[in-house]
């Protein structure tokens, strides 16, 4: 078992004929993802990597019903494509693009809530149930099955840490990228709940960073509701206040969202916080 997605999940790719869309469709197919269709307005009837392309999500859902969709659409147009997917009945929406306007993200989240759908991202690498299904852009070879559940705000840092695990023959159940933006669909708490309920996940790794209050909220939740060991790494210890460190959400504002505050909250909740990314492996081994 894994969380959110599995071998049977039927997936659409919105923006499948673009450079990123077509490349990652190939990568996801290689990984074993069950991609049933693509959407690109005006390009219906074509095929990308053997996957049929439709003009609208509604058409795709009529001919190749899917539960999930992944978006490779330029940020200014992402809102329309995301609302289309949700309206057509997609229940898990993965938003890859960075720089989606904040108000667009809020509109998407409100509509998703109304439709009872889960949104991953924006500005995420996606999610992968290791060995079964990848809906995202992460490099395939690092994601092998195993007992560790991973949830991260950032992509490459997550690959770095999962890469260490892979080298040490430790695999993952599901790896979820929350996204680097301020308004994102899934929060740490949502994913922690799923990992707690997933019998195959034995240890949870939380990869956070400065800015916002998601780590503090996660710490409160862990203290009250998570029985499995949690190991964390947080980025941004050296970041100056008031500067946006690459991610829109990675900024210390008005004294809030500091590294020390987050470490303190997590430590108090019983989470082991690694000082360096390379130390996560040892903390996991100790926890198991």
């Amino acid at each position: 078992m894994a969380i959110y997605i599995n071998k049977k999940t039927r997936v659409l790719v919105q923006g499948i004929t673009g450079k990123q869309g077509s490349f990652h469709t190939g990568q996801m197919l290689d990984y074993g993802t069950h991609i049933v269709g693509g959407v690109s307005p005006g390009k219906g009837g074509q095929a990308v990597e053997g996957v049929p392309v439709f003009d609208t999500v509604f058409e795709a859902m009529e001919k190749e019903p899917a539960e999930a969709s992944i978006l490779f659409i330029p940020a200014p147009f992402a809102r329309d494509a995301a609302l289309e997917a949700l309206d057509a009945g997609i229940k898990l929406l993965v938003l890859i693009p960075e720089h989606i306007p904040l108000h667009d993200a809020m509109d998407i989240m409100a509509f998703a809530k109304h439709k009872g759908a889960v949104v991953v991202g924006p500005n995420t690498f996606g999610l992968v149930s290791s060995g079964y299904c990848k809906i995202g852009i992460m490099p395939n070879k690092y994601f092998i099955p195993g007992p560790v559940g991973v949830v991260s705000r950032s992509g490459t840092l997550c690959y770095e840490i999962v890469g260490h695990l892979t080298v040490n023959q430790t695999g993952t159940t599901t790896v979820v990228g929350l996204g680097g933006d301020r308004v994102v669909g899934l929060h740490f708490i949502d994913v922690l709940k799923q990992f707690e309920a997933d019998p195959e996940t034995r240890v949870i790794v939380l990869i956070g960073e400065i800015g916002g209050s998601a780590e503090e909220e996660a710490a409160d939740f862990i203290a009250g509701g998570i029985s499995k060991p949690v190991v964390a790494y947080l980025a941004g210890k050296s970041a100056p206040p008031g500067k946006r460190m690459g991610h829109a959400g990675a900024i210390i504002e008005r004294g809030k969202g500091t590294f020390d505050g987050k470490v303190k909250s997590l430590t108090t909740a019983g989470v082991k916080v690694a000082a360096l990314p390379g130390q996560v492996v040892r903390l996991i081994q100790e926890a198991m």
């Binding site: 991260s152 992509g155 490459t156 840092l157 997550c158 050296s238 460190m245 991610h247 360096l276």
Partner: peptide, 26 residues
């Protein structure tokens, strides 16, 4: 570095080992 998280982590590690980052560039 490539990616916001890993770039931040690189800066943090430089500081951890006693060095001083001149910038953040993702």
């Amino acid at each position: 570095a490539n990616g916001a998280g890993i770039t931040m982590a690189t800066l943090d590690m430089v500081q951890h080992f006693g060095g001083k980052p001149a910038n953040f560039l993702d």
